[in-house]
């Protein structure tokens, strides 16, 4: 039965794109969670929702509008948190709610919530197209490669930003890179689990890995493995049990976290 489902092209597309997106979400999540910036995923997903609503109103490709728009907004959130008296989380909250409101208004102007808009709100990985599959593979690979290239600097600014500055790292630039990669990944993740659940792809694998590992590199690798397991198991389970895929992926992530938490407690 498992192998028969793999015969469907749409399942193959869902699994491959889901795995690539899960890998980049999980890797980024480790830095974001430890930098107390994990809710940025939620905030950016909401801005992504506004961008998709705009794209549908003007008849453009949702991803073509959402990717640059969300990347721009991510820099805006960073600037709001850094250059004003707002705390980072407050900046996320402001931009997030405003973007959601804008998305709802735009959807209303466009004649209400369409099937396309719903698919971005709740995710529709089983409906992913060939072109979106290729885009997911290419962009996720780019994200993972950039994380690999900047790994040492990303670790330094995450562990001790002040020391990183003294040792010559351009911390502002590295932070911008991190936030832009997050924006890119969030837009891709919206297709998998939807706007409302995308932050789970970022947060759950990271916090699960934190229960298990003592080193940073190992944490990232475990998080990536958790991301792949949850997306794969979620897609397979939702297919067989006829459940919404995005929500099932989140539930699998939660179960992995509970298992890791119990194991971590027993080990300590």
């Amino acid at each position: 039965m498992f192998f028969s489902m793999l015969g469907y092209a749409f399942v193959q597309r869902a699994l491959i794109s889901g795995i690539f997106i899960a890998l980049s979400c999980a890797a980024l999540g480790c830095f974001l969670v430890l930098r107390r910036f994990s809710m940025i995923g939620d905030g950016l997903a909401h801005t992504g929702f506004a961008a998709v609503a705009l794209a549908l109103v003007i008849g453009a490709s949702p991803l073509a509008v959402a990717i640059p728009f969300v990347m721009l907004m991510s820099l805006g959130i960073l600037r709001l948190g850094g250059k004003t008296t707002l705390y980072g989380e407050t900046a996320i909250g402001l931009v997030s709610s405003l973007a959601m409101a804008a998305g709802i208004l735009l959807a209303s102007l466009g004649g209400g919530f369409s099937v396309d808009l719903y698919s971005y709100l709740f995710g529709s990985i089983l409906a992913i197209k060939e072109s979106e599959l290729i885009l997911s593979i290419v962009l996720s690979t780019v994200v993972i490669l950039i994380i690999k290239i900047f790994y040492r600097y990303l670790f330094s600014i995450t562990y001790d930003e002040e020391f990183a500055k003294v040792s010559g790292i351009r911390t502002g630039l590295v932070e911008k890179i991190l936030i832009l990669l997050t924006a890119l990944t969030v837009v891709l993740g919206m297709r998998v689990v939807g706007t409302l659940l995308v932050s789970s792809l970022i947060i759950f694998p990271a916090v699960t890995a934190l229960q298990l590992s003592k080193g940073f590199r190992a944490t990232i690798l475990i998080a990536m493995a958790c991301g792949v397991i949850s997306v794969s198991a979620g897609i397979i389970a939702s297919f067989h049990l006829d459940l919404p895929t995005g929500a099932t992926i989140v539930v699998v992530n939660f179960l992995l976290f509970v298992a890791a938490f119990i194991y971590g407690r027993m080990r300590n």
Binding site: L34, F150, R152, D160, G215
Partner: peptide, 30 residues
Amino acid sequence: PQKTAYADPRFPATVWEVIASGLAARNIFP
């Protein structure tokens, strides 16, 4: 720095990884 008097016990970094981060960065790309 002053604030590293105690590291966050949840932070997943080994001693080796922390010391390696002290090798100075002199380029844009590590």
